[in-house]
Design a protein around this nucleic acid. Sequence first.
DNA 1: AACAAAAGCCGCCAAT
DNA 2: GGATTGGCGGCTTTTG
Length: 305
Amino acid sequence: MAGPWDVFNAANLLAGLPSEPYRLELLSCSEDRRVETVGGMHLVGRRNIRACRGPIDTLIVPASFGFERVTSDRALIRQVQRLARHSRRVASVCGGAFVLAAAGLLDGRRATTHWRGCEELARRYPAVKVEPDRIFVKDGNVYTSAGVTAGIDLALALVEEDLGRGVALSVAQDLVMFLRRPGGQTQFSRILQAQNADRQPLQELLARAAERPDEELTVEAMAARSHMSPRNFARVFVKQVGKTPARFIEQVRVDAARRRLEETNSDLECVADGCGFGSANSMRRSFLRVLGVTPGAYRERFRRG
DNA sequence: AACAAAAGCCGCCAAT
DNA sequence: GGATTGGCGGCTTTTG
């Protein structure tokens, strides 16, 4: 809920319009208007959902897991169905797709949800064409997004549709540099990736570095690829990224290595090689700098299964 | 664990 | 005149 909320709120501030384009409202299902989130945080809605009358521009249903409770709440489902009829478009974040599905809003449509729930969604609602591995899916006026932070991407896409790319970009820049996804794999926000064409030629480089940490990523090589002198490249890099090139690359490589240590049984030399470290020894030194533990100790602690 | 070579970083200055 | 860029020298950090 908070991610999209902040996106729309930032859009209000950054759109530069005389009146704010979005009016945000949190609806609650309970009489006292309280909403207790899964983490135990308490929010208070402006209104009870039953008191809400249309028309609504964008109805967003965020939910975590625990679909049993949510999808079996007939009153809630009925209210969602009712409000959807008065909405220009309907969206869900994470487990919210289960609510939309239960309301029949996804029948015959393409949709996605948190990677951990995709199978379950497809099994329970055969009429839904589940697309795993997507950050978000748009089908007609129904939008669904994957886990947690994907809701931010979804909201950015809606802002882009409404107010144009420029506003969406400023919002994205205002909120984040890039996003790491929960599925294990590093992915970049679509909209942030797109901005590389415009103002920030470095973004493309950063994305590529994260995907291929084993490539040559010295200042000299990256400068050449960016058509800049090494001196200027380093300067621009610090200004845009906030870290020096070597620091950033080290971080990227350590992240890549962590993942492999967690998810594979490759030996350290192999991991080091695949992540761009010259040797297991230099990987070890990077780990100590960045994480304070050796690769071996890290794997020992975090390996799966 | 020590050490030389390589790479990175940054202040300064000149050119654009 | 301010902003961006590129080169140089010297110091620090990292690597093999």
